[in-house]
C-alpha cells in the first residue's frame, strides 16, 4: 500500500492542511514508507484479540455537577488573533 498525490490531496482536505505543490511528492514518498512500516501489523494474528483502546483497564471517574469555573474572557482572548465585541472572528461561515 502506498499513498499517491491524490491520496495526499484527500488527506490534506480531511485534515485541513495546505502543503505546497512542490512538497507533495516528498510527502507522498515518506508517507508511503510509513505505510510500509505499519503494514507489518497485518502479519499479526489477532483473530481472538480484544482491541485495547487504553492502558488503564478502569472505568471513568465522574465529576459532581456544579459550576466551578470563573471565565476571564479578557485573559482568554489575549491569545486570539482577531476578536470583536467578545467574538472570535473568522472568514464568513456559510450554512
Amino acid at each position: 500500500m502506498s499513498l499517491d498525490s491524490t491520496d495526499i490531496d484527500k488527506l490534506c482536505e480531511l485534515a485541513r492542511l495546505a502543503i505546497p505543490a512542490d512538497e507533495v511528492a516528498d510527502v507522498s514518498a515518506k508517507l508511503s514508507d510509513i505505510v510500509a512500516l505499519v503494514d507489518q501489523l497485518k502479519a499479526a494474528d489477532t483473530a481472538e484479540v480484544e482491541p485495547m483502546a487504553h492502558p488503564l483497564d478502569r472505568s471513568q471517574r465522574l465529576r459532581v455537577d456544579s459550576a466551578t469555573e470563573d471565565v476571564d474572557r479578557e485573559l482568554y482572548q489575549d491569545n486570539a488573533p482577531a476578536v470583536e465585541r467578545g467574538l472570535y472572528l473568522v472568514p464568513k461561515v456559510i450554512d
Partner: peptide, 16 residues
C-alpha cells in the same frame, strides 16, 4: 465546570 445559563454575553461562559 462552566455554567450552562442561557443568554450570557459572548464567550463569558466558555472556560478553558
Amino acid at each position: 465546570g462552566a455554567a450552562t445559563r442561557y443568554g450570557a454575553p459572548p464567550n463569558t461562559q466558555a472556560c478553558l
